[in-house]
Simulated scan of single mutants.
Amino acid sequence: MQSHHLAVYTFNQFIAPYQSESIRGFRDAEPGAFAEMDRASGFIARSGYEGEEGPMSWGPQVFPKCWENSNGDGWAPSTLSVWETIEALMAATYHGHAYRQGSKWHLARPVVPEYVLWWVPAGHQPDWTEAVSRFEDLMDNGPNDRAFSFRKAFAPDGQAVKPDAARVKAIARENQALADNE
């Protein structure tokens, strides 16, 4: 049994209000993206959002200090989930259709990361506040053993690691087989 799992928090800002026509493609793709994530090999759980159908929210949703309510709707695309391994998350993320189209809907903000990764003890469910704290750590301090990215990843023991590319491809094939069998 694994002693640690990988938590991931994603964050961005939309180019227009969530209900606008500009964001329609995102709204249309979102249910399928969540379904793809939920059935992916190595997926453990994800937080839902207060007041919405689906999984329970892991506490009140908060946003990082870099968030600006520039669209006036009080909303920003963010997710919080837990995975068995970094390779499982990479397979689901890099091969997911909706993830590859983010630039159509999100503001380009080169100094703000789009996600943060960190290890949690197996069975721990991070909340939104913990996730934002890790995101801000990455934004303020760069990749470290508490808050990192795929490009500069760390193992649970704090040692720098490179994800296993062959394992990522194998998991992606497993995920595609699952999708094909539905």
Rank of each mutant, 00 (worst) to 15 (best):
K104P: 01
K104N: 13
K104I: 12
K104S: 15
K104F: 11
W105T: 09
W105R: 05
W105S: 07
W105M: 05
H106P: 00
H106T: 14
L107G: 02
L107D: 02
A108V: 14
A108G: 11
A108L: 12
P110S: 09
P110R: 05
V111P: 04
V111S: 13
V111N: 12
V111F: 09
V111Y: 10
V111E: 14
V112E: 13
V112G: 00
V112L: 01
P113L: 04
E114I: 10
E114A: 14
Y115T: 06
Y115H: 14
Y115I: 04
Y115A: 15
V116T: 12
V116Y: 00
V116I: 08
L117C: 08
W118I: 02
W118P: 01
W118Q: 01
W118Y: 12
W118A: 14
W119G: 05
W119M: 05
V120I: 11
V120R: 04
P121V: 06
P121L: 07
A122C: 08
A122K: 13
A122G: 03
G123P: 02
H124A: 13
H124S: 13
H124K: 15
Q125R: 15
Q125W: 08
Q125M: 14
P126L: 03
P126W: 01
D127E: 08
D127N: 15
D127W: 03
D127Q: 05
D127A: 04
W128E: 03
T129N: 12
T129H: 15
A131I: 00
V132I: 08
V132Y: 03
V132C: 07
S133F: 07
R134M: 09
R134Q: 12
F135P: 01
E136N: 03
E136M: 06
E136T: 07
E136L: 06
D137R: 13
D137W: 02
D137A: 11
L138Q: 01
L138A: 02
M139H: 12
M139W: 15
M139F: 04
D140M: 09
D140H: 11
D140I: 06
N141K: 11
N141M: 07
G142V: 08
G142L: 04
G142M: 08
P143L: 06
P143H: 04
P143K: 07
N144L: 05
N144V: 09
N144T: 08
D145Y: 09
D145H: 10
D145T: 10
A147R: 01
A147E: 04
A147Q: 02
A147K: 02
F148Y: 02
F148G: 03
S149Q: 09
S149F: 01
S149G: 07
F150W: 11
F150T: 09
F150V: 10
F150K: 10
R151V: 12
R151T: 10
R151Y: 11
R151W: 09
K152G: 01
K152F: 07
